[in-house]
Design a protein around this nucleic acid. Structure first.
Lengths: 193, 193
DNA sequence: GCGGGAGGTGTTAGTCGCTAACATGTTAGT
DNA sequence: ACTAACATGTTAGCGACTAACACCTCCCGC
C-alpha cells in the first residue's frame, strides 16, 4: 500500500498543473502563458513541471482517444468497405466522447487550433493516429507491410475528419461535430462517384 | 542601378547562408546544427542570419511551389471533376519541377520528413496550400465562402499527395514521384466506387 | 524505533532559438 | 564631401528545455 500514497500525490500534482495551465491558457492565451507562470500557479518549480509534462504542448495534447478508435476499428466486420470501417469506428468513438465531454472537447479544439505551436504538434500526433489506423486496417503490426491502398484511405479519412473538426471549430451554422463528420464523409463519396 | 549592387550582394549572402545551412544539416543533422554554427560558416553573425530567414526552419522550407499550382489550377477547364482538376494541376506542376530538380527535391524531402521540427512546419505550410486550393476551386477570394464540399476535396487531395511523397521518401521499389501520385489518386477513386 | 536507500523536489546554471537596442561602417544620392 | 539610408555586429535579454547537485520525505528491513 506504500506506493499508493505517492502515486495519488503525483496524480494530484499532475492534475493541479494541468488545471492551472488550462485556466491560464484560457485567460491569457497559450503563447502569453509562460511555463514558469504555470508552475508558480500550481505551487511547484518549473523543473517539476517538465518532470510531469515533457513539453509545454503536452499539457494540452493528450493522446487519450487513439486506443478507443483502435478497438472500435478492430471489432468492425471485415465485410465492410475500408472507408466505411473507418467512418463507423470514428463515429462510434466520437459519439461516446461527445456525449460525456462535448464542451470540454470544443474548448480544447479552440485552444489547439488557435495556437500555431499546438496545431503543429497536433499534426505530428495525427501522423501517429494515421499509422495506427493503417496497421489496424491492414491487420498487421509491421508498418512496412501496409499496402499503398490502405495508406491512401487512412490519409483521406483523417483529412475528412480534420476538415469536419475545423468546420466545427469555426462554428458556422452551429452544427454538431458528429453530423459534420457524417456530412464530410458523404461529400467525399459523392465527389468520387 | 545603384540599389542593384546591394540587392545582388544580399542575394549572394542569402544563398551562402542557405548553402552552408543545407550542407551542415546534411552532415550533422538538423537538430544538431545550431544557428550560430550556420552563421559562422557563412561568415555572418546570428542576427544577420535571422534578418535573412525569420526562423531556422525557413532555410529549408520555401513556399515556391504554391503560385505554380495555383496558376495550373485556374487554367484548367471547369468541366472537369474537382478531384480531376487538382490531379491535373498537381501533376502538371510536379512534372516541371521534377524534370529540373528531381535530386535536390528528394534530398529536401528526406531532410524535412526526417526532422520533426521541419515536418511540423510543413503541415502548417500545407494548410496554407490547402486554403489556396480551396479558393481556387471555389473561384472566390473569401475563405468563408468556400463550401464544405470543396474543403473536403482539397483536404483529401492533399492527403493523397502527402501519402505519395511519404512513399517516395521511403523509396521502396524505387518508384518515381509522379507515378506514385498518379497511383495514389487512382487508388482513392477505386476505393470509393 | 532507527538507519539507510529510493525517489520526488528545488536551486542553479547552462544551451538554443529568437528579439530588441544601440553603435558602427558602408553605400547612395545630392 | 556631406548626409541620409541601410546592412551588419555586439550585447543583452526572454522563454523552452536539460543537467547536476543537494535536500528532504517516505518506505523498508533490522
Amino acid at each position: 500500500m506504500g506506493g499508493d500514497w505517492r502515486e495519488r500525490k503525483k496524480a494530484r500534482t499532475r492534475e493541479r498543473i494541468q488545471r492551472e495551465a488550462l485556466r491560464l491558457f484560457g485567460e491569457q492565451g497559450y503563447d502569453e502563458t509562460t511555463v514558469a507562470a504555470i508552475a508558480s500557479a500550481a505551487g511547484v518549480s518549473h523543473t517539476t513541471f517538465f518532470r510531469y509534462f515533457p513539453t509545454k504542448e503536452d499539457v494540452v495534447l493528450g493522446d487519450e482517444y487513439d486506443p478507443l478508435i483502435e478497438e472500435a476499428l478492430r471489432s468492425r466486420p471485415r465485410s465492410e468497405d475500408l472507408v466505411e470501417r473507418v467512418r463507423g469506428a470514428v463515429g462510434e468513438g466520437l459519439a461516446a466522447v461527445y456525449a460525456a465531454d462535448r464542451d470540454a472537447l470544443l474548448a480544447r479544439v479552440h485552444l489547439v487550433l488557435g495556437a500555431p505551436a499546438l496545431r503543429a504538434r497536433l499534426w505530428e500526433q495525427l501522423q501517429d493516429t494515421q499509422s495506427l489506423l493503417e496497421r489496424a486496417l491492414a491487420d498487421t503490426d509491421d508498418p512496412a507491410e501496409v499496402p499503398m491502398r490502405v495508406r491512401v484511405v487512412a490519409a483521406a479519412c483523417l483529412a475528412v475528419l480534420t476538415t469536419a473538426i475545423t468546420a466545427w471549430n469555426r462554428g458556422e451554422g452551429g452544427a454538431e461535430l458528429p453530423d459534420l463528420v457524417d456530412e464530410a464523409f458523404l461529400q467525399l463519396r459523392a465527389e468520387l462517384a
